[in-house]
Each structure stands twice: as structure tokens, then as C-alpha cells.
């Protein structure tokens, strides 16, 4: 039962991810991306990672995608104003994306899959997650926090109109 649900959700995730790339209208692309995030959140719930699922929805579907939608709506993109890219650019983009995929597949293949117990009961509960993050992985956690802070300061600096 759970496995079938997982497969169905996975199918939807892949389908809507493909639609993100193939749909002509950028607004539709963003809405398909939101659907993808929901399907992935469903997968997280099936893997007992409720916290991750909810945070995925709050951060990605609820905040980042709204900002994307916001920007695209303001840009008012349509067929007339769409810039036409040359063949060379398209080729370069395909090669770059393909290389990224090779890296991803390679890193997944080398990863230690024995540690993952997909249907263990309370692995993703917030208490356990907190204990792991603030105990075992404290340093990487804090380093990523500093990284986010730096990114935030950078964004504010870029957003300022007049830098003295």
C-alpha cells in the first residue's frame, strides 16, 4: 500500500517536473514546480519525515515559489518579448545540465545506502532531528547558518539602491 502510494507520488513528481520544462507559459511552469514540491513533500511523509515535509512546503512552496511567481507576474512575459536563443547557447545549456546530472548520479551511486532505513518509525520526528542536528552535526549546522547569514547580508547589499 505504502509502496504503491510512494510510486504514484513519484510518478506525479517526475511528470510535473517534466511539465515545468515543457510548458510554454512561465506561470504554468512555476505552478507545476509547486506541484512537484507537493509530491515530494508527500514522499517525505511516507518516509516518516514529517518535519522535512512541512518545512519543504513552508519554505519552497510557500515562500520561494511565491517570490518566483511574483517576479514572473511583474515581468509579464509573453511570446513577443521572449528572447530567441541561438543554437550554440542551447547546446551549451544542454551539456552543462547533462554534466550536472552525471555528477548527481555519480554521487548517489557512491553513497552508502546501507544507513537508510526507509520505513523506520520515528527517524524524521522533530525531537530526533533536533538531537541529531545539535549534537552529532552541530558544526556543519552552524556553518550552514553562517552561510545563510552571509547570503542574506549579500542580498540586502545588492538590493540597496545607493551604496555609499
Amino acid at each position: 500500500m505504502t509502496l504503491y502510494l510512494f510510486l504514484i507520488l513519484g510518478f506525479f513528481a517526475v511528470l510535473s517536473a517534466l511539465m515545468v520544462v515543457f510548458s510554454k507559459n512561465p506561470i504554468h511552469s512555476i505552478l507545476y514546480l509547486v506541484l512537484t514540491f507537493f509530491a515530494i513533500a508527500g514522499e517525505y511523509v511516507l518516509l516518516n519525515a514529517q518535519f522535512l515535509a512541512i518545512v519543504n512546503i513552508i519554505v519552497y512552496a510557500g515562500a520561494i515559489m511565491v517570490l518566483f511567481l511574483f517576479v514572473v507576474m511583474l515581468l509579464n512575459l509573453n511570446h513577443e518579448t521572449e528572447p530567441h536563443k541561438s543554437m550554440l547557447r542551447k547546446l551549451i545549456a544542454v551539456i552543462a545540465a547533462g554534466l550536472l546530472m552525471v555528477v548527481l548520479v555519480g554521487s548517489l551511486k557512491g553513497a552508502d545506502t546501507m544507513a537508510i532505513q526507509p520505513f523506520s518509525h520515528n527517524a524524521g520526528l522533530i525531537e530526533n532531528l533536533g538531537k541529531v542536528l545539535f549534537d552529532q552535526f552541530l558544526l556543519p549546522f552552524e556553518v550552514s547558518a553562517v552561510l545563510f547569514l552571509a547570503a542574506m547580508v549579500g542580498a540586502v547589499m545588492l538590493g540597496k539602491k545607493d551604496i555609499k
Binding site: 514529517q50 512541512i54 518545512v55 513552508i58 510557500g62
Partner: peptide, 25 residues
């Protein structure tokens, strides 16, 4: 009674804005 009840509410409110945005656009 999900053990992340408050976060669920936050998530639903953050999706709620799509109704207005999609309708308005």
C-alpha cells in the same frame, strides 16, 4: 494530532496566498 501541528498551520497559511495570486493574475 500530528506532532508538528503549528508548522502544519504555517504551511497551510503560506499556501493560502496562491489562491489570491492565481486568481489575481
Amino acid at each position: 494530532d500530528i506532532n508538528i501541528g503549528i508548522l502544519y498551520i504555517m504551511a497551510v497559511t503560506s499556501i493560502g496566498v496562491y489562491g489570491i495570486m492565481i486568481g489575481g493574475w
